[in-house]
Amino acid sequence: MTPPDTQSSLPRTWKKPPFIANPLLRYGLLILAVAYLVWAFGSLPFNWARISEGLPRAARIFSGGFPPSFERFGLLLTGFKESFQIAILATLLGVLLSIPFAVMAARNIAPLPIYLIGRAVIIISRSFHPVIVAILFVAAVGFGPLAGILTLTLYSIGFVGKLLAEEIEEIDWGQVEAMRAAGAGYLATLFYAVFPQILPRQVGLSMYQLDSNLRASAVVGIVGAGGIGGTLMNAFGRYDYDFAFAILLIIIAVILLSEGISGWVRKKIW
């Protein structure tokens, strides 16, 4: 069908079009990336002498850690109980307090100055890793679960508050107008037209936050804010590796369990 002579006009070679069309940009980015890797590796202070001792140390730690020892089960239980309590109370406080902050940080229902304050609180509490917040609270109110509760409350406000504020900004505005048309005041509008729309989300978020607080409560203890983290830190500090590994195993088990439960409950609600 095709006459043979037209075939000679066809291109005879083909190369895959490169990912970045401009060759200067393409090779420039590549060189930049390699240069960065070299610079970063070169500038970091590695203590090779100490690192080279690592393997025998690892062997000693793991042989000391196996089998994990559950002898001090009482201590382990006390630590976990405290972690639970911290997580529960912080979730409750955090979820309740996140509502006013979310209202403040929602552009569509908060006046501008209030909005800026609300956003700032949420951004700041989200910028800091809970462990940094914990170390500050420990410095302020002393060692113990109180610092842990305060830390995770702030953490929850940041996380739940942000998502909730986004949810409020996306509500069906018609309901708010209807309430205003009926002569409702600001608070009445909030309670009848805004909160019902965000409530289902809030319940799901609370479950998620409880799970996430439980995870975080295990680590804030490392800097002295109560719970199982402190027990773990002590075990590591005293070279009780068999007890430390026992704690780690239980932490993993509890986290898996809590993730499973929280996922199941959220599926039921949504």
Partner: peptide, 15 residues
């Protein structure tokens, strides 16, 4: 941070 705790114990403090 728990991973870090473990690796500090093995390779010593550092990056």
């Amino acid at each position: 941070i728990i991973w870090a705790l473990l690796f500090v114990a093995i390779f010593g403090p550092g990056v």
